[in-house]
Simulated assay, not measured.
Amino acid sequence: MLTVIALVTALLGHSNSTLALDQCLEDRLVLRDVTIADGSGRWSHQDVLIENGRFAAMGRALEIESDVEIAEMTASGAVLSPLVERDVILVQASYSTDSAMLMVGEDADFSMSTADGAHLADFRRGQPIGQCGL
């Protein structure tokens, strides 16, 4: 829970720099009210469920029933897009080789930025790059 608070604080307080987290995020995390921008389009006010390093669900106002507590983070205004590293797109749709997409079932590899394009963080398998031994 402290990690989620630290991430929210970092998102709100350091919109012009890369996030620096000291701990891994939860195994199950919901990002609330983000914009998804990928090769198939752009959707605002979306929720994204990340479970064990993979995208488990995406959609507007996701309702998740679970016996296990799920960490939630409201990241209004944040934009999620496929992670691009060394000019290689890591998230691709199986039916397209040139349009990167965030897809349910795929590894949660994505970049997070502010609405005006300032970089916040890169995530691989749902964890900030450089943290958790990544």
Score class of each variant (00 low, 15 high):
Leu2Gln: 15
Thr3Asp: 12
Thr3Arg: 05
Val4Trp: 06
Val4Tyr: 08
Ile5Asn: 11
Ile5Pro: 00
Ile5Arg: 11
Ala6His: 13
Leu7Tyr: 08
Leu7Lys: 06
Leu7Cys: 09
Val8Tyr: 04
Thr9Pro: 00
Thr9Asp: 07
Leu11Tyr: 12
Leu12Asn: 11
Gly13Lys: 10
His14Val: 03
His14Asn: 14
His14Gln: 12
Asn16Lys: 14
Asn16Val: 04
Ser17His: 12
Thr18Ile: 03
Ala20Tyr: 06
Leu21Cys: 05
Asp22Lys: 14
Cys24Val: 05
Leu25Trp: 03
Glu26Cys: 10
Glu26Arg: 08
Arg28Thr: 08
Arg28Leu: 09
Leu29Lys: 07
Leu31Asn: 03
Arg32Tyr: 06
Arg32Asn: 09
Val34Thr: 03
Thr35Lys: 07
Ile36Cys: 06
Ala37Gln: 12
Ala37Trp: 07
Asp38His: 09
Gly39Tyr: 11
Ser40Thr: 14
Arg42Trp: 04
Trp43Gln: 14
Ser44Val: 12
His45Leu: 05
Gln46Glu: 13
Val48Leu: 11
Val48Ile: 14
Ile50Gly: 08
Ile50Arg: 05
Gly53Trp: 02
Gly53His: 04
Ala56Phe: 01
Ala57Lys: 15
Ala57Thr: 07
Met58Asn: 06
Met58Cys: 07
Arg60Ser: 15
Ala61Asp: 15
Ala61Val: 10
Leu62Asp: 04
Glu63Trp: 06
Glu63Asp: 10
Glu63Ala: 12
Glu63Lys: 14
Ile64Glu: 09
Asp67Asn: 15
Glu69His: 12
Glu69Val: 15
Ile70Lys: 03
Met73Ser: 14
Thr74Gln: 03
Ala78Val: 15
Val79Gly: 03
Val79His: 04
Leu80Asp: 03
Leu80Phe: 13
Ser81Gln: 12
Leu83His: 03
Glu85His: 11
Arg86Ser: 12
Asp87Ser: 14
Asp87Tyr: 10
Val88Tyr: 06
Val88Gly: 00
Ile89Asp: 10
Leu90Arg: 11
Leu90Ser: 02
Val91Tyr: 00
Ala93Thr: 13
Tyr95Phe: 13
Ser96Thr: 15
Ser96Tyr: 06
Thr97Ile: 07
Asp98Lys: 09
Asp98Gln: 11
Ser99Trp: 08
Ala100Leu: 06
Met101Leu: 05
Leu102Cys: 00
Leu102Gly: 02
Met103Pro: 00
Met103Arg: 13
Gly105His: 05
Glu106Val: 00
Glu106Met: 08
Glu106Asn: 13
Asp107Val: 05
Asp107Trp: 00
Ala108Met: 03
Asp109Pro: 00
Met112His: 05
Ser113Met: 08
Thr114Met: 04
Ala115Glu: 10
Phe123Thr: 01
Phe123Met: 02
Phe123Asn: 00
Arg124Gln: 05
Arg124Lys: 09
Arg125Trp: 01
Gln127Ser: 02
Ile129Tyr: 01
Gly133Val: 01
Leu134Trp: 04
Leu134Lys: 05
